[in-house]
Design a protein around this nucleic acid. Structure first.
Lengths: 223, 223
DNA sequence: CGCCGGTACCGGGCTAACCCTCAGCCGACC
DNA sequence: GGTCGGCTGAGGGTTAGCCCGGTACCGGCG
């Protein structure tokens, strides 16, 4: 199996190279950025490319764009995204071009080296490999494409004030409502945001986070 | 040069092992958590230990605690922290025990393998190695008023989880504490953030907002 | 040695914020 | 007219999260 590895973090890349060569694979090229990756793929026949999404120069989605280009230009080449981030929409973008010879794994969730090598082989052989937590988030995301879209105007008013750190009483005073009405709106917006009652969650904070994330789309790309 | 490597991310650890062995170093032990690290240091004479701060089981500062223990128990052993996060206060904690045979580097900023190996050798030989951006942030932190600056490490851990929308119970479970302890930390951090009890405020949300607004909070959060 | 801050955690008390069911009014739409 | 969703809000019940005072241990420091 011939592999190309595109990853700008040199220590991490060295690790992947080592694991694969120890397993008998041939690493035909290494790249630290997207242009180098594309040039390597043109020059070196390979079975699979392991690609990090965020690479220089922009550190945004250079790797993803390159992965898509690879799939278009080299139909026989498997592409495995190996990302530090749980980014379902990126996984979806990759899979739009077909669910064969593709993969999306999370760096932190690779705990068994043999499994990792097996996953790479599977993608090289035309299979699909995708981290279960990505699938779970994909499913969740289908239900609420835009979390705030389903809220009524009043619910949004209430949530905005919650997101300022206001108590229910203060929200009521500000909107000239009864505290009971605020509670009713809060309860309704929890349901619409898909926030179920669990022992592990503070739903008010989760609702506020949803609001803040929606108001600032750039925050979704952070970290 | 004999090296011990403590890092729970297996691919990354493999990378570090490869780079060092390729450079002629001897990796005498590998560890995926702090207790294994301490046991390895007791069993295998080494010149330097490369340690990740956040490791199992708590994923908080187990690595840092272990690093400090190493420095106390093995005076001749150099300790190089290799962290994914820019955490100046942790760097300071490490250096409090002396500025010899110590190092603090960021994973993402290791761009040259030979420099990395040279840095490891420097620490093994009793030198000090510290990433320039850590120094800059140390200096910058002095200039800016960061509301989180007055929080203890534990309080910051608790607040980070609150900011994920976790309940006190979930925070307790995650950090292996009693819910009562979490309450105590929450109460303490409210005071330090200057959040007084008023009828108009939801202080938990305000604390979360302070966390989200502070300088580079992501650098302080695991995962 | 005593003091201090950090960490951990207890018992006990209180309430804001949640839950539920129910109800009324309004305007839009069929 | 009847239905629907949005808005408003009541009564009643529960509890997570806050409060307080207190204890205990540890390491660092004077």
């Amino acid at each position: 199996m011939r592999v190309i590895i595109a990853e700008d973090a040199v220590l991490f890349r060295a690790g992947v190279v080592r694991v694969l060569t120890d397993a008998g694979c041939t690493v035909v090229a290494e790249a630290g950025d997207a242009p180098t990756l594309l040039a390597a793929a043109a020059r070196h026949p390979a079975d699979v490319a392991i690609v990090d999404i965020r690479m220089p120069p922009t550190h945004t989605i250079e790797g993803l764009d390159a992965a898509r280009a690879l799939r278009a230009e080299h139909p026989g080449l498997g592409v495995l995204i190996l990302s530090a981030y749980l980014e379902p929409h990126y996984a979806m973008t990759l899979l739009e071009h077909g669910v064969r010879a593709a993969g999306y794994l999370l760096k932190d969730r690779v705990t068994d080296l043999e499994e990792f090598v097996a996953a790479v082989r599977r993608v090289a052989a035309g299979g699909l490999v995708i981290d279960p937590s990505v699938v779970a988030q994909l499913l969740g995301r289908r239900r609420r494409r835009d979390p705030l879209a389903g809220l009524t105007g009043r619910e949004r008013d209430v949530l905005a004030l919650m997101a300022e750190g206001r108590s229910n009483q203060a929200v009521a005073a500000r909107l000239h409502l009864s505290p009971k009405t605020v509670e009713a709106h809060v309860r309704s917006l929890f349901g619409k945001l898909g926030l179920e009652e669990t022992a592990d969650d503070n739903r008010r904070v989760l609702a506020v986070l949803a609001f803040l994330r929606s108001a600032d789309p750039a925050a979704q790309v952070a970290s």
